[in-house]
Design a protein around this nucleic acid. Structure first.
Lengths: 356, 356
DNA sequence: GTTCAAAATGTTTGCGCACACAAAGATATA
DNA sequence: TATATCTTTGTGTGCGCAAACATTTTGAAC
């Protein structure tokens, strides 16, 4: 058999001695088929090694797939802004195909908003959904609804054990904390006093923080780095001014050699304080390539950033969904991104390549 | 205008008051067109915002594109083995499209082999070529030939100024050296004696090494790290045994605190020596996620690896070519990959995610 | 054997585009 | 003015598949 000649449905049909429609019925398990025809077709499929031409398939079906992308409002937060730009990039990337990607934004700090927007998503009647499930209980309800409607979904950024999605895209948070610890330990050498800075959160983000801190502490424990002290501070709320004032107080009272900030936003606020008080010698490890973080890294105040790559998470999430819908390609159950270490010398290479 | 109804060539044609063939001629710049028709069509294209349906386009053209991927034999070298696996992945990825990807392997150390294989590539009559041009002069001849035949090509791994390719994929070598220096300096603290280990090479790889070393030294100079000493050793040839023996000698004679090895293969040979002599306290910075390097990183002998991501370079190279051939999408002139820093704590996250 | 509905199978069209082919229009030549 | 030649424009078919639509076969009831 000529391996370079594609086998079409027509070829299979001829070999099986039936019409193309019968083969089509077998392939798509639709309509009724006699046992005799079924076996004949199956044999022909086997013998020819038929592979559907997915290009022709999508063209022929002429269906427009609708994908809903649901995430926190990018306008209100630089981290989610990057996710948003990923959605936008994916939209462009798949524009040529029969795919329509619709963004749905909710308020990060408002569970009600999450519920309302998820209802809007349902009303949109999407063929599949990409979702950042930052509100645990509300997300579970939403998942249940999606399952009932048999709408497949991919989640990113935040994992939820019971979610049972097509795929989860994100990072290993525990290990991420360990990487942060490793960097800080490398920078500080043999000993030092370390601060871990939290903000109290109600969202699933709290789990991010906890897991990262667990990994962070475990690193020191597992490597018998007993000459380090690690102290955690949890700030009560999201008020920038309060955070800045209290952190200044803490830093004025005690000797601090290094700081680990497990979230992106508070990373640059911490840097701002260090900049203000002129304590540039304190090693700072934080998260993500946000505009402000980039600035403070150039300034030499932030020493290491761990890149969660929100943009790429979004792009890949949409990619998995499109491939699933159009090309029946099953994504991996989970896609854990590499824990990228950003420094002053490699940050530019990341910023540039992020555009591709 | 209904934004959800796709605009087809037919629609554009009707609006412009011409036939679909005329629009087709404008779109593909083929055949002759009167100025009047041209402007009418252009206007109609503008007004409708016509976007070609690439699915239909590839189906309609029904042409099989042949891409030749020319690189050093993956069986002989673990680094190039990863490039090879990238080619393989790309082959699978694009199998559904009308693309045939054919690998062509040459001997890394044999210019004659490069010439012979490049002739084979020409005979294959590819529609485009992906190439790792490790032999300078031979590559130039090959580029000239490809240009004459109007075969577009993308180069990766090694850049050649005069190459004039569709796109170069690789890394900023100078900056890469700076990152290595940064890591070593962070690890060592304020002072130390550093070795840079080279092997004399005839291929374009020599440029890799030189640029990396330049960046490496510049980092120390620019940051006034004057308490470090940096000494380079160039080993005469590719003999493993000689390398090991001589390195042992050097290490027994002088106090060494850190070593920078700008190439992947000699990274793990250096690690082998350090392992053998029990000098685990010497900081070692090298290149790439090769099997042996991974091993020595787990062992704690290699401290940092800079990941050049040969696999992804190959995948992306093919991707650019396919997009260019099938979808007329122009790749960027150069795609410089991020300078990824690998450590003991994040290495697993890289190995896992490399599979996706 | 008819009749009739359900079951099984077959035929055809359209998806949007590329491209071969056909036709018409413009210009030059005799 | 007729004819040849080149230029410009238009028509039709096929790519492989999905799905609507059309036809034949089967078998049960009379």
């Amino acid at each position: 058999m000529d391996q370079f000649k594609n086998i079409r449905i027509k070829d299979v049909a001829e070999l099986a001695g039936v019409s193309v429609a019968t083969v089509d019925r077998v392939l798509h398990k639709r309509g009724k088929i006699s046992e005799k025809a079924m076996t004949k077709v199956m044999e022909a499929l086997e013998k020819t090694g038929y592979k559907p031409n997915l290009i022709a398939s999508t063209l022929g079906s002429n269906k427009v797939f609708k994908i809903a992308a649901m995430l926190p409002n990018p306008a209100l937060d630089d981290y989610w802004n990057q996710s948003g730009s990923g959605i936008f990039k994916a939209t462009e990337e798949w524009a040529q195909y029969n795919v329509r990607i619709e963004p749905f934004y909710f308020n990060l700090y408002d569970k009600k908003s999450f519920q309302q927007v998820s209802q809007k998503v349902i009303d949109f009647k999407p063929d599949s959904v990409l979702l950042a499930p930052v509100h645990y209980h509300e997300a579970l309800d939403f998942f249940a609804e999606l399952k009932k409607l048999e709408i497949p979904y991919v989640i990113f950024n935040t994992n939820i054990q019971e979610a049972d999605p097509l795929c989860f895209i994100g990072q290993d948070l525990y290990q991420s904390g360990r990487v942060g610890a490793e960097m800080l330990a490398t920078k500080l050498g043999k000993k030092g006093n370390i601060l871990v800075l939290h903000i109290y959160e109600e969202t699933e983000n709290a789990i991010h923080v906890k897991e990262k801190e667990r990994g962070f502490r475990d690193y020191f424990a597992n490597n018998n780095l007993n000459d380090f002290t690690i102290e955690s501070f949890e700030f009560p709320d999201f008020n920038d001014a309060v955070f800045i004032r209290e952190l200044q107080q803490i830093l004025s009272k005690q000797q601090v050699d290094g700081i680990f900030v497990p979230t992106s936003k508070w990373t640059h606020l911490t840097a701002l304080v260090l900049d203000k008080t002129g304590q540039k010698d304190i090693a700072l490890v934080g998260y993500d390539l946000l505009k402000d973080n980039i600035h403070y890294m150039y300034e030499g105040i932030i020493n290491f950033l761990i890149h969660q790559n929100p943009r790429k998470q979004a792009v890949k999430g949409i990619g998995y969904l499109v491939n699933y819908l159009l090309f029946k390609k099953q994504p991996p159950l989970s896609d854990l991104f590499p824990l990228e270490i950003i420094t002053r010398e490699n940050i530019k290479s990341y910023i540039h390549s992020d555009l591709n």
